[in-house]
Nucleic acid binder design. Structure first.
Lengths: 132, 132
DNA sequence: AATTAACGTAACCGTACAGTTACACATTAT
DNA sequence: ATAATGTGTAACTGTACGGTTACGTTAATT
């Protein structure tokens, strides 16, 4: 089982052309050339977009003669979907009130904790980038 | 009602630090300084991340004395969720077979259409960037 | 064998971003 | 009034894109 980097997935999805390519591939596989024809930009530009989509595993390539067919791989999107899960409660209206309540409670807490703040900045400032 | 650009949303989400900030804010609002303390990078760096998150409307800022509290705005995420809707059928296992079938059918179709391809490239190459 | 078709890649540009340090500014504490 | 705190912004650097044109490679035609 492969694991998908949200990093690659989200930045691949950030470009409107690439999202449009995915939209196109929803209808089925397409050779690179046909994909390019659907857009007003040059073919090499599309080629580069396809490379990013490949890198993010959002599409797979499969060669057939001199054609390169691209097809959608929905797995990274499924991963996005499950990442989103943590946030669903924030827009399910039934839980909106609970959320507001919790937020208010937490706000009091943090404000109380803010006043006598003591944590040494230097000890916290470690090497770099442990996030993710 | 505001409309959220998927462009801004996805590229904001592409950075792991920013996703971690959102994670933090799920527990409730936080002043910028406290957010910064949770990360090994400099405070101005966080400040810039917050600016991008603001630009994407993923967070709101609200001032209180010299503090700037940030809180989560889930709306753009909801928009992502509904964008994802189009792709859900691709990973709902019950529909996987249907999908495979449709894809295969479509493949035959496009292959048939590929052989006698005639569309003039130049007429298709319009001005620029009408996508999205 | 020589062309043509369908691609990808290289080299080059401009722009945006992730990080840094130095600085500016407003609010609170002395 | 002065100093300290909480934040944002400016300027600068390196890196990754998005686009272009030119070129290379492999497969199908003629």
């Amino acid at each position: 089982m492969v694991t998908y980097s949200p990093e690659a997935t989200f930045s691949a999805l950030a470009d409107p052309t690439r999202r449009a390519v995915l939209d196109l591939l929803r209808k089925g596989r397409q050779p690179a050339g046909q994909i390019a024809q659907a857009f007003p930009i040059s073919r090499p530009a599309i080629s580069k977009h396809l490379r990013l989509l490949r890198r993010a595993h959002l599409v797979n390539e499969h060669r057939e003669g001199r054609n390169r067919f691209y097809h959608l791989n929905p797995e990274p999107l499924r991963a996005v979907d499950s990442w989103l899960e943590q946030y669903r409660s924030f827009w399910s209206t039934s839980l909106a009130n609970l959320k507001a309540f919790v937020e208010a409670e937490y706000a009091k807490e943090t404000e109380a904790a803010t006043t006598p703040r003591r944590r040494l900045h230097s000890t916290i400032k470690r090497k770099r980038r442990n996030v993710e």
